[in-house]
Design a protein around this nucleic acid. Sequence first.
DNA 1: AGGCTTGACGAAACCGATTTCTTCCGCTCT
DNA 2: AGAGCGGAAGAAATCGGTTTCGTCAAGCCT
Lengths: 332, 332
Amino acid sequence: MATIYEVAAKAGVSPATVSRVFNGLPVSAEKVDLVRAASDELRYVPNRTARRLRNQTSELIALLIPDVENPFFTALARGVEDALQAAGYSVVLCNTDDDPAKETRYLDIANSENMAGVILAPSSEDGDIRHLTDHDRPVVVIDRNTGLNIDSVMVDNRAAGIAATNALFDAGYSRVACIAGPVEIESTEERTLGWRQVVAKRGSGAGNLQEGYLQHANYRVDGGRSAMQALLALDSPPDAVVTTNNLMGVGAIQVLSEAGIVPPEIGIAVIGDLPFATLPPRAITQIHLPARHLGTTAARMLLERIRGDKQPARTVVLRAEVTQGLASSALS
Amino acid sequence: MATIYEVAAKAGVSPATVSRVFNGLPVSAEKVDLVRAASDELRYVPNRTARRLRNQTSELIALLIPDVENPFFTALARGVEDALQAAGYSVVLCNTDDDPAKETRYLDIANSENMAGVILAPSSEDGDIRHLTDHDRPVVVIDRNTGLNIDSVMVDNRAAGIAATNALFDAGYSRVACIAGPVEIESTEERTLGWRQVVAKRGSGAGNLQEGYLQHANYRVDGGRSAMQALLALDSPPDAVVTTNNLMGVGAIQVLSEAGIVPPEIGIAVIGDLPFATLPPRAITQIHLPARHLGTTAARMLLERIRGDKQPARTVVLRAEVTQGLASSALS
DNA sequence: AGGCTTGACGAAACCGATTTCTTCCGCTCT
DNA sequence: AGAGCGGAAGAAATCGGTTTCGTCAAGCCT
């Protein structure tokens, strides 16, 4: 790797002049040519490490997500990347695996690498977010209330839960269960509250909140599977089910489909998208979470901070959008 | 951010001693205590940029993949991460979006950031891989023949194509079509050759290679959709289809399922995994690509290089594994 | 006791950029 | 003509670590 000194020596100028050429500072046309020729010949690429040590900043932005295998987060990542790429930044994706220790480690890296900013998507447990504000590095948090003075982009999770549940009642189902994620996760709890609220109002008769209709499980496919199996084993199983995330929805649908139960025999509403669903469309109600939009929004807010915006922290709330599934009456 | 100089001043020692304490070099117990106390109090974290400028290396490894939204690549990423994490490295994921320019940009970044190594998964077009060997930085390439002296991990794509096609003939289907990716991509072409080879041998009668049974489309869900629609529109449509990647498989299945055609009325073999499939198991033959294993293997090879292994470049070939689908005879 | 090894540790060089400080040159203005 | 100004460009400081080199004192040997 050629250095700026080698280029300077070859061009017969000082390193300062080479630096000025590369940064567009005023240099005589004659020397510009000399420097360009020398740097081309040596295939000089400025060393970012050295530059960063001096400048105390880079064009790298860290995006921390809990699970690269979850389409919700990869869609979000695309949104982030699209927006930041356009602004000349590069995104490095860090998989925290829902592990606060890994999250903290990557945050430390982002700091000591002098990255330009950080976008943090929630992991199940609260990591040491204080690391962030400490170093006055621009940060945007996605879908998590930190209680700190940090920009955030949220989803209206309560509304999503309400919409999902209402859609099932509207379609004619009456015994609507809920497959929820771990109680520690704020977003899934909010969605569950939305479900509970609608069931309390529209559920049939007195026993509107059937024993066992609320299943907590892990946030992945196998969590959805075991929860659905538990629901099917009930004495009076539900005729419809809401799942509070996409992967649990996949698990639930797998179990039903293995048992030969398909919509509209049962109603299914999934909060989140099923990007690789192989079922006919409209068989399932989906509450589309604006994953990509969350990403672009977070990226734009981060860019404003990087450019020096000092206004108090903002919270932007985005809404989900419903795609209607089949009605229960289609059974007849 | 406290620096090593501030710590040294507070502890009453030289910066060299502080550095030695942090790197486990011999320092008297007394001074170790002084330094630890001072650095704790100042919450000192070594600046990685400065360290790297001196050491010319970091514990960061870049993983370049063409599409973060494709489960094959995210599974691969998990494999890479698992192996490297255990060895004390952190992985940054870069999404090249099948764009040679982006690929080149990330490679340049990996170089000028002095990253410890690079793992490169193929994009459709050949980027400027020569950038890699230039800088004698450890590199492993996944599923692409470079012709250069670079370590690589390959999948036996021909065998996968053969296995997929044989599975359909074995199940009793006789008119087997193929939905292939863009011709430029080597891996999909190899799989297509496998299909062609089996069809030539086992296809019915003279017209064993029906006009239109080979559809080229883009490597995504919509590519699979349009190709499947084209196949259905043929005068004599196939009774089974092989898709040369997972996303095209999803698209094909979606189209079939919308048309009310489900296995075993039609045979489907997908090369790749359908991680979020919502169909009953065994409805579809899957040729499981060892994505995660590809990742761990590549990571391990890279680690050997980072540790100074200088042997000539190696190529490791992994095989896919078949999960059998339903037989055509199940129709009756 | 005197020479020699050994180990701790500070001073200073170094990694490769950027940027300030200075110098130097040519030009304008009175 | 001489003071003053401005632009180009080199010398040197700087970012924050690591590492070499040299010093000094303690311990060991004959």
